[in-house]
């Protein structure tokens, strides 16, 4: 793959990969590392053998594997928030709550959901992936994806409620300063 094609691949996928990584790692710096490592693996491990049409799925799968590999190595990240796994039905107030919150707070709430549910939820919400695509990316059965989506959404509603009540003090990642001129 030449430089131009690789740059196009990066442009197409680095932002969604970063959001996925941010939801998993709960840390902007670690998320950046994960995305860089994912593209580095793509560039160094025979990407030419893969179909470009499958690049998106491959990149998400690889990032997730790298995240799990890093977690196994880093015992500091082994503690997860202890959110209840019980059912929480959607109510009208939930939609109003999300509308009131800014994106950083919604991401903060998502980051408190158990990791098992967080990965499929992120792909569902951020990437509009189907249950089949999520199953492929995370390498789990379809039924498992559906179960995790169901339970994860329930946790997320609780987390959103809790996060809003805590306010912006829980913000865990830096906001984007952005380019101010072009």
């Amino acid at each position: 793959m030449n430089n131009e094609a690789f740059a196009e691949l990066v442009d197409a996928h680095y932002a969604p990969l970063y959001r996925f990584a941010l939801s998993l790692s709960r840390n902007g710096s670690d998320a950046g590392d994960l995305v860089q490592q994912t593209f580095f693996i793509w560039a160094t491990k025979g990407h030419g053998l893969r179909e470009l049409s499958k690049a998106k799925s491959w990149l998400f799968t690889t990032l997730y594997r790298e995240f799990l590999r890093g977690r196994r190595r880093d015992s500091r990240s082994s503690s997860l928030e202890d959110l209840p796994a019980g059912e929480r039905e959607p109510v009208a107030e939930d939609v109003d709550r999300v509308s009131r919150m800014d994106a950083a707070l919604v991401m903060a709430a998502l980051q408190t959901v158990d990791e098992t549910f967080r990965a499929p939820l992120t792909l569902f919400y951020l990437e509009d992936m189907s249950y089949q695509e999520i199953a492929d990316a995370l390498e789990v059965p379809i039924g498992t994806v559906m179960s995790r989506l169901s339970r994860g959404k329930s946790q997320l509603r609780i987390a959103l409620e809790r996060t809003e009540s805590l306010g912006p003090k829980v913000l865990p990642f830096p906001t984007t300063k952005g380019t101010r001129a072009s």
Binding site: R19, G32, V98, A103, M107, L110, F124, L126, D128
Partner: peptide, 15 residues
């Protein structure tokens, strides 16, 4: 609710 969450999360930008 799903639409609202997806819309908000889509606003998160890489550094």
């Amino acid at each position: 609710h799903d639409g609202a969450v997806a819309g908000k999360l889509g606003l998160v930008s890489p550094p």
